[in-house]
Amino acid sequence: MSTKALPLRIASSTLYIHHHNHDRRFGLLNHHRCFLFTHPPSPPPLLAGKRHRIKLTFVSTAADSTQPSSAPASADKAIVTDDEFSLAKVSFGVVGLGLGISLLSYGFGAYFNILPGSEWSAIMLTYGFPLAIIGMALKYAELKPVPCLTYSDAQMLRETCATPILKQVRNDVIRFRYGDEQHLDEALKRIFQFGLGRGIPRRNAPILQMIREEVTEDGKYSLVLVFEAKALQLSDFEQRQAKFASFFGPGITAEVGKGSENNLYEVRLISNTSPNASPA
């Protein structure tokens, strides 16, 4: 607790302000009291020798930081992170290109006696050049994997409820591919009939952006394909809903809908296998 007196002169009058500061830790409470004493420059004769005192008290109370805040919104389902190492997650283009360039660089350095190992320079140059060419070719034809969002409850149902085709689709799109124009290229070609009379031009083909594993309200495993299609409408997907079900079937039901953003559309492949079904 501290007390300070600050003089202020306003229009030939002196104000004495006594500042009382009660400061409690953590910002629980702050009180400010100010006492103003005015001294007129020329008091009337009858009132000479008297002092007028005006007491002003200002009390301000800060918010109590210990008060419980409003209850947070219910937490979403737990998301499973895929940290397991797999060769499918390795880019062979990057590996081949890096290894080939390393051999070529060291081979040239050893050949000109800048680096040791001149007797091995010919071998390093012989193998480094084709490795670099192959790496560049793989890197050029490389198709990167799409993100996969997996919820914990869906992961537990994957092995028992997901059909073999749904598992294959998931494994194919979350790994590096080489030579394909896009993920699920063969499936999209048959479903949307690129270049045919009732189909769409290939340049308007939807592009797979991500997949999502989730559980439906009735407890079934669902694999959601999220496509970006700037030149298509929701009706283009709805007209081909049965084709999605037949191509990725049997044992699934297909549902289409609008995505969370513009030009995004979702195709939900729901397994008809119930988690409560008894094994045959």
Results as ranks from 00 to 15, higher is better:
residue 186 E to Y: 00
residue 122 A to K: 12
residue 237 F to L: 14
residue 196 L to P: 03
residue 37 F to P: 09
residue 53 R to G: 13
residue 106 Y to F: 13
residue 152 S to P: 09
residue 180 D to W: 02
residue 43 P to H: 11
residue 148 C to G: 09
residue 174 I to M: 06
residue 121 S to F: 02
residue 110 A to E: 01
residue 129 F to L: 09
residue 111 Y to D: 04
residue 133 I to N: 03
residue 40 P to G: 14
residue 241 Q to A: 10
residue 165 I to H: 03
residue 28 L to A: 08
residue 271 S to N: 06
residue 152 S to M: 15
residue 191 I to H: 04
residue 87 L to I: 05
residue 82 D to Y: 02
residue 42 S to K: 08
residue 157 L to W: 05
residue 70 S to I: 10
residue 150 T to P: 01
residue 269 L to F: 01
residue 243 K to V: 06
residue 172 D to C: 00
residue 8 L to M: 11
residue 25 R to G: 10
residue 135 G to S: 12
residue 10 I to H: 09
residue 216 T to W: 08
residue 91 S to H: 14
residue 204 N to C: 03
residue 189 K to S: 00
residue 232 L to D: 07
residue 177 R to P: 00
residue 60 S to L: 09
residue 204 N to M: 03
residue 241 Q to R: 15
residue 110 A to I: 01
residue 211 I to M: 10
residue 165 I to G: 02
residue 199 G to Y: 00
residue 65 S to A: 10
residue 184 L to I: 05
residue 127 Y to R: 06
residue 225 L to S: 03
residue 112 F to D: 06
residue 12 S to L: 13
residue 204 N to L: 05
residue 145 P to D: 00
residue 10 I to K: 05
residue 278 S to C: 01
residue 239 Q to D: 15
residue 82 D to M: 06
residue 197 G to Y: 00
residue 271 S to K: 06
residue 207 I to M: 06
residue 119 E to T: 05
residue 47 L to E: 14
residue 101 I to T: 12
residue 58 F to P: 02
residue 196 L to K: 01
residue 41 P to C: 08
residue 141 A to C: 14
residue 170 R to T: 08
residue 274 S to T: 12
residue 173 V to M: 09
residue 34 C to H: 13
residue 268 R to P: 01
residue 193 Q to V: 04
residue 45 P to S: 14
residue 245 A to G: 07
residue 140 Y to M: 14
residue 48 A to R: 12
residue 68 P to N: 10
residue 151 Y to N: 10
residue 87 L to Q: 02
residue 172 D to V: 07
residue 251 G to H: 02
residue 64 D to T: 10
residue 4 K to R: 11
residue 100 G to A: 11
residue 13 S to I: 10
residue 72 P to K: 15
residue 8 L to I: 11
residue 103 L to C: 07
residue 70 S to A: 14
residue 262 N to I: 07
residue 73 A to G: 05
residue 4 K to F: 08
residue 2 S to R: 12
residue 16 Y to H: 07
residue 46 L to T: 11
residue 153 D to G: 08
residue 87 L to N: 01
residue 52 H to G: 13
residue 162 A to R: 01
residue 133 I to G: 05
residue 239 Q to T: 13
residue 239 Q to C: 12
residue 122 A to V: 08
residue 109 G to A: 15
residue 69 S to P: 03
residue 233 Q to K: 13
residue 25 R to Q: 11
residue 103 L to T: 05
residue 254 A to S: 12
residue 66 T to V: 06
residue 186 E to D: 02
residue 35 F to D: 14
residue 181 E to R: 02
residue 90 V to M: 03
residue 96 G to I: 02
residue 155 Q to K: 14
residue 197 G to P: 03
residue 89 K to M: 00
residue 217 E to A: 09
residue 274 S to D: 10
residue 97 L to R: 04
residue 113 N to T: 07
residue 32 H to I: 14
residue 140 Y to A: 15
residue 265 Y to W: 15
residue 80 V to L: 10
residue 248 F to T: 04
residue 276 N to I: 09
residue 217 E to Y: 03
residue 28 L to D: 09
residue 96 G to Y: 12
residue 43 P to V: 06
residue 170 R to G: 03
residue 122 A to E: 09
residue 141 A to T: 14
residue 190 R to Q: 01
residue 163 T to P: 01
residue 15 L to M: 13
residue 32 H to K: 15
residue 62 A to G: 11
residue 74 S to H: 05
residue 271 S to R: 04
residue 232 L to S: 09
residue 109 G to D: 12
residue 216 T to F: 04
residue 184 L to C: 01
residue 224 V to T: 14
residue 106 Y to V: 07
residue 61 T to K: 10
